[in-house]
Write a protein that binds this DNA or RNA. Sequence first.
DNA 1: ACAAATTATGGAAGCGATTCCAAGGTAATA
DNA 2: TATTACCTTGGAATCGCTTCCATAATTTGT
Lengths: 344, 344
Amino acid sequence: MGVTIYDIAKEANVGVGTVSRVLNNHPSVSAETRDHVLAVAQKMDYRPNASAQRLARRKSRTITAIMPYITNYFFVELLGGIQDFLFERDYDLLLYGVNHPKQIETYLQRSLRAGHSDGMLIASIDLPPDYTQKYLKNNFPIILVDRFNENFDSFFVQNVEGAHAATRYLISLGHTRIAMITGNKETTPTQERSQGYLSAVGEIDTVHNAGIFYPVLESTNDGFSKDAGCEIMKTILTLPEDRRPTAIFVASDIQAFGAMHALKEAGLRCPEDISLVSFDDIELASYYGLSTMRQPIRKLGVLATERLFARMDHPKLEPLHRRFTPELVIRQTAGPPPSRYRNV
Amino acid sequence: MGVTIYDIAKEANVGVGTVSRVLNNHPSVSAETRDHVLAVAQKMDYRPNASAQRLARRKSRTITAIMPYITNYFFVELLGGIQDFLFERDYDLLLYGVNHPKQIETYLQRSLRAGHSDGMLIASIDLPPDYTQKYLKNNFPIILVDRFNENFDSFFVQNVEGAHAATRYLISLGHTRIAMITGNKETTPTQERSQGYLSAVGEIDTVHNAGIFYPVLESTNDGFSKDAGCEIMKTILTLPEDRRPTAIFVASDIQAFGAMHALKEAGLRCPEDISLVSFDDIELASYYGLSTMRQPIRKLGVLATERLFARMDHPKLEPLHRRFTPELVIRQTAGPPPSRYRNV
DNA sequence: ACAAATTATGGAAGCGATTCCAAGGTAATA
DNA sequence: TATTACCTTGGAATCGCTTCCATAATTTGT
C-alpha cells in the first residue's frame, strides 16, 4: 500500500535505521545524509504509519476523555480547556461522550486495552469501585474532574461550600422561607449541594427550609434540565402563597432557566416575587441576569490535563486533590423578599 | 510489561494462532479449547494491545471528526449524533476541536498519517484546495458536514433557501424595511444566507433592504456570537427611527440573543417594535421564543457517519450530496410592524 | 475399508515503525 | 605512527498482534 521507511532506505541507498533517525531528528546523522533522505521521503510522499509508531514506541500520543453530555456549556468549556493544552503537546484526544449511563462501563472497559491511550480524564462521573481497583493495579494514569476520589488526582469544585454560600446570600437578603430545586437524588452534585443548603438554612433559627424538590420523572439522565426545573417550579407554585418560599436555591443554571420560565408563565416576577440563585454560571447565565455560583470550568480542564501529563511522566506521584471554591456572581434574579414577608 | 498472547499460549499449551482465533471468535476452534483459553486469559488478566491490533489488522477502528467550537449547541448536537452511531459500531472517536483557524492545517496534516484513523468527518470547515487533492489522491474516506464540495460526500442545509424563506416570512407579516445581521464576511454561512436574504428583498418592489450588518471587530472566530449580535443591534438602533428597519433577519440564533438583549436595554420590545427571525434553532431558541429556521443538526451527524461507514466499506462510491431544507419555526419574536409603518 | 473432505491446530511470516549493537571511518592525542 | 575516541551507519531484533499455510486428526461418502 503506502510507502514505508524500507522503500525510502532502498531509494536513498541508506539503512532503515538511518531513515528512522532522520525522521525523528536524531542528532547523529550527517547533514548531508539528512537532506538527502528528507528529499527522497518528500519525493515519495512518505507518510508515517501511526499504528506502527505506536507499537514500536509503546506510546500512543493520545489521551482519552470520558464525560457525560450534561449541559452543553460545561461539556464544551471543559473540552476546550483540555484540547488547548493537548494541541501544544501534539497529542490527540479520544472522546467518549456519555449519552446514557450504560455506556460508561463499555467505555471504561475499552480504555483498559493496553496501548489504547496514554492516560485518561474522567469528568463528572463517579468511578465504579471495581474500576478503581483495575486502574490502580495497572497504574494507569487517570485524573478525575468534577469528582473526588482519594486514590486519584481529583480536580473539583466545593459543592457543599458553594451551596452554603448561595443560601447564605439569600438569607442575607432577608429571606426566611427558602426552598431548593435540584437534580436526581443519586447524583453527587445533588447530594453535596443539598448538604450545603441544609447546613445554611439550619444555622439560623428564623429561617425555614421550605423543602428540597427533586425531579418527578425518572429520567435517563441526571435531572439537571430546563424541563425538570420548569416542572418543579410549577409544583412549588401550587403551594398556598403563605407557605410558598420567597427564595429558591436552584442547583443548576439550566434548571433555573426552566424555573424562570414557569414563573413568567404564572405571571410572577423574579426577583420581586421569588428570588433565585443557582449554580454553574454557564454562558447564558450572564446573559439572562442569573445570580449564580461560578465554577472555573475551563481552568479545571487545563489544570487537570497538565496534571495528567505530569503523571504520565512520573507515574509514582502521590494523588493530588485540588478543590476550587465557587464564587458568587450577583446579577438580577435575587433581591429582598416581598415587603409583606420581610424579616421579623 | 503486560501479558501477551504468547504468555497465554504457553500457559494454555496451545499455539498463538489458536489464542488469537479464540480471542477473535473465529469459528474453527473447538468449544473445549475455546473455554480453556478464555479461562487462562481471564486468569492472567489479559488485555489486548490496541496498537498491535491496529498494525496487524491495518484498521484503527477509529474515526476522526474535525469541527470548530462554533456555537456550543451545534457542536454538541452534531457530536452526539456521531457518537451514538459510533457506539453501536464499537468505533472510537478522535476529536479535533478547532479553537483557532490556524489549527485546521495542523489537524488536517495529522489526519493524513497512515493508520491514524479509518475515515474523517469534516464539519463546518471549508476544505483547503491542496487538501482536496491530497485526500483524493489517497482515496481517504472523508465526509463533509455543513459544507459542500463536489468531490466529496456532502451533507448540508440549504442556506440560501433558508434565508430566503425567513425573509419572505418577514415580508408576509407586512414589513417593508428589513435589515440583516450576520457573521464575518468571509464565512460561507454569511455569504449564502446574505444571498438568500438579498434575493428575497429584491423580489418585491415595496420592500427595502435597510442594510446587511457585519460584526465590527475583527474577531478570531466567525463573528457568530452573542456579543457581536448585541453590538450590531446597538449600531442599528442609532439610526433615525424613520430609517430604522422594522424587522431583521439575523443569521444565527446566538446573535439574535445578543440583539434581543440590546433591544431590551434600549427599552424596545420584540416583536412590537422590531421583529426578528434567525437561523439554527438551537436549544435555547425554543425556550426564549425565538422564531427561527430549524436545522436538523443531529440528523446530519447520524447520516454523515452512516455514509462514512458505507464509504469505508466501498471506497469507490460516487460522491453523494444531500441537502436539507431548513424549516421555519414560528414563535414569538416576529409579528406585524408597528401600525405607523404598516403596509402602504 | 479406503479415499476425500472437513475441522483444529501450530507456528512462521508478516504489519511498519524504533532502537540497540557492532563496525567502519575519521579525527584527535601522545 | 599507533592508540583512543567519536561520529555515522547498517541492519537485526523487537513491539504484540493477525493470518496464511501446512499438517494432523476426524468425519463423511461409497
